[in-house]
Amino acid sequence: MSVADMPNAEIPGAEMPDWFVHKKPRANLIVARWVPAALVGLPVLVLFAIVVYPTVWMFYHSFQDTNMMRLFQGNWSFVGWDNFGAVLSSGRFGDSVVHLMQYLLFGCVLQVILGTILALTLYEIVRQEWLRVILLIVLVLPMMLPPSIVGVLWKFMLTPSNGAVNQALLNLGLVDKHVEWFNAGVSLWAIIIADVWNWTALPLLIVYSGRVSLPPAVYEAARVDGAKGWLVMRRITLPMLKEVIAIAFIVRFMDAFKFVDLVYVMTSGGPAQTSELPAYIAFQRGIREFAIGEAAAYAIIIFAISAVLITLFLKYLKKVLKAQGIA
């Protein structure tokens, strides 16, 4: 029976030579002993202060009836699952989840699709290296602007009476009267349009770099095999980019759950809460209305949902990568 076959518990220490035991490497340091401790310790302290403590604080308060008054007075009290109950039973939360779905489907998915199309078009169609670089820079520019500026910019562009977008639509004859971009039911679309403009460049960059790193020999093989154009795209490029595209989507997906800035700048969730997203409500309830307990409950629910979804995503990704022998 070889050692490898033996269950660990059965290895009798006494019968093994003394070296036949896994030894932990001794610390062999070229610096003073406190240096490694400090190098590890300081970041841990900072991490604790800015991540662990607030998170624990939030969990704690999600079960308390904390508001600003009580917070300062220090007399909040335990209310069990009341905060969660309030959140889940309110129509406001349900509506915001529907908005989030709408945003994911038409915002994030659209960004990934558009980004992929742009990236591959850029790579396959534009032959001149310099032109490609210039186009890439131009396409990436919106992403470099702060969201508050983007929000203001699009608020102006979408102004119903004399905004650039309505003018253009009228001149092109696509609409016959001004579109009321910030009315109920439409304002969420306004946010989505601005967000697509703002963030399409991210999936574009991710997919473009993915395409650049695909092995050229495979494309030569396809050329010799006689495959061209759309067939190569459909059967070879897109399948090979599957994981890269999935990663681009996950990145945008994660952002969606904490999406506050454009909502705040463009519509403040209005009119009549018709463009609210869950994170925005948490922000609104906690920071603006100081319903800290309820805001914490919002945050935890969002955290839980996104954690589950992203774990599923990563599981899928790992499976795919494993099947291809990459990871």
Partner: peptide
């Protein structure tokens, strides 16, 4: 290449 009707095996295999 297709019109020439050649087939090629690559050093790096270049399998899909």
């Amino acid at each position: 290449p297709q019109a020439r009707n050649v087939a090629m095996a690559f050093e790096t295999y270049a399998l899909y």
